[in-house]
Simulated assay, not measured.
Amino acid sequence: MNRNLQRLTELASRSERRIIGLMSGTSLDGLDVALCRISGSGEDTNVTLTHFATVPYTDDLKAEIRKVFAKKDIDFQHLCLLNPYIGQIHGRMILDCLNRWNLTPDDVDLVASHGQTVFHAPKSQHGLAKFPNATLQIGDGDHVAVTSGIITLSDFRQKHLAKGGEGAPLAVYGDYFIFSKRGENRLMLNMGGIANFTYLPGSLNAAEVFTTDTGPGNTLIDAFARRFFDQPFDEGGRIAARGRVNEDLLRILKKDPFFTTAFPKTTGPELFSLDYVRQAQQRSQTTSLTAEDLMATLTRFSADTIADALKSAIQPGETYHIYMSGGGMHNPVLTGAIREQLPEARFSSTDELGISGDAKEAVLFAVLANEAVAGGTTSFGDRQGVPTVSMGKISFPF
């Protein structure tokens, strides 16, 4: 037997695996690196986060990614070059983290690499009848594996697409395995560049679980913070707090058909872009808004569309606990506006559940890798958006 396959067989039979989850989202701020100890699989999954770091992207790397990020027309050679380049960079980032944690590659069993999203194109968005749902993450898994010296699972979203999903959000699987609790309805709200949530019923019935994007989280806030204030994001919501929400612009921003499309659905910065906001300003005759007022309005736009989506999932007479994660949870202007619209719900971060809200997405990919190697038996029924599927392509380091 090939020694790599033998190694996988041994890992599958172990009681515990040490897995690094990697996540870099649409904010392009850096790579989240989460080292987890994971035992069991499926509903018996148990996760302990032992080490976590966010390794910042350099300004040069951000600039290189933005040449192709969420753009229909690009230099194809540049995309081709970025794929191995980012894989090598992510591999070196793993090694740097392990060195900082006084560990070696031999202390890690698997890497679960999400890659860097550069384009998301569900059929509902591209509108081309003969083509299926599509998404593209770069940062080749073979390069991650060879550079780090660790067996790597990557390209998780393609199997989701192949089974009829839109390739996102994938958090539903890990959310269900590690955060479900009998007797408590939970909504796992992640506010990254795009916001999404997973509904976890207190009944623990996997067939009732669903996940959906809600629209923009931080993507527009971050884009205009860079444009007008030369800041990567609105730290603590301080810029938005200085402005006033413009109701005319807010009304037009909310008019996109995405917001009336039934769950589950996905989207990305391909739709919610600088042009989207410019067109809304022209239509609402608000092109002369101050930068602070625009930031306040965009923050409310995210808050209102998140709250509206959550309300759609809440049933009268039921109680819900909303657990927040992602960069948006650190913006009190954003979270405060959401809380105001859901006064009956209880809010906290996933830190309360033992997983840092900043690390959660990286941890969830580690869980997906664990399922691919040692699980894959849980049925989520046959519903749109949550296909029963095992995800991740395997790359060997030698």
Rank of each mutant, 00 (worst) to 15 (best):
Gly237Leu: 12
Gln116His: 09
Met324Ala: 11
Ile322Gln: 12
Val108Trp: 06
Gly167Asn: 04
Asn2Pro: 15
Ala223Tyr: 12
Ser39Tyr: 14
Val209Asp: 01
Ser41Gly: 03
Pro84Gln: 09
Pro169Val: 02
Asp155Pro: 05
Val373Leu: 11
Lys255Asn: 15
Gly139Val: 05
Ile239Lys: 10
Gly149Trp: 07
Ile38Tyr: 14
His160Gln: 02
Ser39Cys: 03
Met93Trp: 13
Glu340Trp: 09
Glu166Met: 00
Arg300Thr: 14
Ser154Gln: 11
Tyr276Cys: 13
Gly115Ala: 12
Arg226Gln: 10
Ser148Ile: 05
Val55Tyr: 14
Gln279Asn: 12
Asp358Val: 06
Met191Pro: 03
Ile151Gly: 00
Ala296Val: 12
Ser284Phe: 08
Val172Lys: 04
Leu353Arg: 05
Val389Glu: 04
Pro216Arg: 01
Leu11Gly: 06
Pro132Cys: 08
Gly327Leu: 05
Ala168Pro: 05
Arg227Asn: 10
Phe258Arg: 03
Gln279Lys: 10
Asn133His: 00
Thr211His: 09
Thr286Met: 08
Ser13Thr: 06
Ala225Thr: 09
Thr286Glu: 11
Leu294Met: 03
Arg300Asn: 15
Leu161Ala: 02
Glu270Leu: 03
Glu184Pro: 01
Arg17Gln: 05
Pro343Leu: 06
Ala70Val: 02
Glu16Lys: 01
Thr378Gly: 01
Val373Pro: 07
